[in-house]
Nucleic acid binder design. Structure first.
Lengths: 114, 114
DNA sequence: CTGATACTTAGCTTTATGGCTCAGCAATCA
DNA sequence: TGATTGCTGAGCCATAAAGCTAAGTATCAG
């Protein structure tokens, strides 16, 4: 494990914004141009472009320009990076579902009921 | 669907920092106190506390104070929120891995306008 | 009661983020 | 050719993030 932490920084940072997640949602249904993607958002185009750059920089989408139109498409592979991190994380918990944790969890219940 | 976008903001934002991910890694092995968690990091305690607050605010960890020691534990449930988002996202792609997408990819530049 | 420990609060600085406008440039269209 | 479309680049502004120090509070150990 110990995958590039820096890569995860960018990915999670990109996902931490509702506009960018909405764009991913839209691109999940198929590629689209910048201006098509921008339409639903009440935002100037240069501002919107920053979101696109964030998504592209993190590798969550890829873009290419044909003529004057830039088409964006989701890059599904990057999502695997997230899943890998999640499952690494789970592996930690599950490799160690032991008495210590149970002990603390129960003590915690006692506290919570105040 | 349409889970609280605001919740995802906080979760992804919290995950977008290597210190905070490292803390989660440590907590995956069991609960720990603030100062134990802080030890590996070359950072003043108040700075470290901000990371803890970020994690707690996003719901990824829970903390409780006993005497003068605050103990932190991971909250596994919040991770399900991420998985849900991921699988919603995948559902979009997979619900529509069809000729349309291929078609659009190839003919985009001519056919974008209806 | 005193001192050490374990945070906690307040406030400051620097940098990053997310928005804007204005201006430009290349590709299409009339 | 000239206008329109679809970005793109430069640069400004306000707010948030991530670090710091200094000082405060509350346990706990003697």
């Amino acid at each position: 494990m110990a995958q590039q932490s820096h890569q995860l920084d960018g990915i999670f940072q990109a996902l931490a914004d509702p506009t960018r997640r909405a764009v991913l949602g839209r691109l999940g249904q198929g590629p689209a141009s910048i201006s098509d993607l921008a339409k639903p958002f009440d935002m100037a185009l240069p501002s919107f472009m920053k979101h696109i750059h964030s998504l592209e920089g993190s590798g969550l989408i890829q873009t290419r320009k044909e003529g004057r139109v830039r088409t964006c498409a989701i890059d599904k592979q990057r999502f695997a990076t997230i899943e890998t991190w999640l499952s690494d994380q789970r592996a930690l918990w599950e490799g160690r579902t032991d008495r210590l944790e149970q002990f603390v969890l129960k003590t915690q219940d006692k506290e919570t009921q105040k």
